[in-house]
């Protein structure tokens, strides 16, 4: 027997940690989604697809900036000392993933803005002709445009990776303390982004390409989840117990049904049938992938807070 009784009952700490509500999972999901959108945009720009006005890479940067701003607002809502938010930008702490993230968020906006001006959507160029002039000048520099594509892919990768490292650097929460979490969040972000772009792309060939890419990301995600779990159950006692939260504990139903089943396996089967022309492409599978990605962040953030070192039997 091991009975542990404490007189402490601090708000948000006891009986189990619950400091982060909906804001952080939503922000982490959006960070991953926009990271994936930046990588897809960068790839299309790098491959020269921006020359076609109908390319989806024309609308993605603007959508990315709007969605990321919503995510940053959620992050702001989570802060408890809001008036001091500016303190994030008076220092850079190399050991703090949150400090890295704050600065990465600052640099991704100019990169997305640059990719927006590579191929300004017609709607904007009609209202703001000066945008088209910038676009024309940019398009005279082929290598500059390729570099904008590369920078978007790199910064998108950094943004997606950071959302995982933000949690995995917190060693006090065994479930987060995995070297696979950055990869899981990056691949999940890429699959959500591919699903999202699949829905907003106007060209059939782009939709087909993104459905195929999404299938690839979903298959990789299954393997990464497998490696994440293997890494946990072959580690220390607290890591094994934290993995059990997902495998057979209180978070298992939502993890297996909504994240793995409805968020990865079923949409993967639907999209495999669609890309093999057995059934038509519909928004059902992409919506399932996006919701699955969001629920993955909720499960990981909640279960991670529940996992701990003290009297580690949970």
């Amino acid at each position: 027997m091991n009975e542990y009784t404490t007189t402490r009952h601090n708000e948000m700490i006891d009986p189990s940690l619950h400091i982060w509500g909906w804001e952080i999972p939503v922000y982490l999901f959006i960070g991953g989604l926009v990271a994936g959108m930046m990588i897809i945009t960068g790839y299309f720009i790098f491959k020269g697809k921006y020359k076609d006005k109908a390319c989806v890479c024309g609308v993605l940067p603007l959508l990315g900036m709007i969605i990321l701003s919503a995510g940053m607002f959620a992050l702001f809502l989570d802060l408890e000392h809001k008036l001091y938010t500016w303190r994030l930008y008076t220092s850079f702490k190399i050991a703090s993933p949150m400090s890295w993230g704050a600065w990465i968020l600052i640099v991704v906006y100019p990169a997305m803005a640059a990719s927006f001006f590579v191929n300004v959507p017609e709607y904007f160029s009609k209202i703001f002709p000066w945008m088209d002039k910038i676009s024309e000048k940019l398009q005279q520099h082929r290598y500059l445009i390729k570099n904008i594509g590369v920078i978007n892919m790199l910064l998108g990768g950094l943004l997606g990776i950071y959302t995982g490292v933000l949690l995995s650097a917190l060693g006090a929460r065994p479930l987060w303390n995995s070297s696979m979490l950055w990869l899981l969040f990056l691949v999940s972000g890429l699959s959500s982004a591919a699903a999202f772009v699949h829905m907003v792309a106007g060209r059939v060939d782009e939709r087909e390409l993104l459905a195929k890419a999404d299938n690839g990301f979903l298959i990789i995600e299954i393997f990464v989840i497998g490696l994440f779990v293997i890494g946990m159950i072959t580690s220390t006692k607290v890591h094994i117990q934290s993995a059990m939260l997902l495998l057979s504990g209180i978070y298992a139903p939502v993890f297996w049904v909504f994240v793995v089943g409805l968020g990865i396996v079923i949409p993967l089967i639907i999209q495999l049938l669609a890309v093999n022309h057995k059934i038509k492409h519909t928004p059902i599978a992409p919506i399932m992938v996006i919701i699955g990605g969001l629920i993955l962040r909720f499960v990981i953030v909640d279960a991670g807070q529940y996992s701990h070192w003290i009297d580690a039997a949970f």
Binding site: E11, W20, S96, A169, A172, H308
Partner: peptide
Amino acid sequence: HDMCIGCKACIAACPYDARFIHPEGY
């Protein structure tokens, strides 16, 4: 206190759960 933004990363990082958010936000 006036440098803390109340992000709660330190609370999550503490294996002893020794920290909390003061009602004033830090």
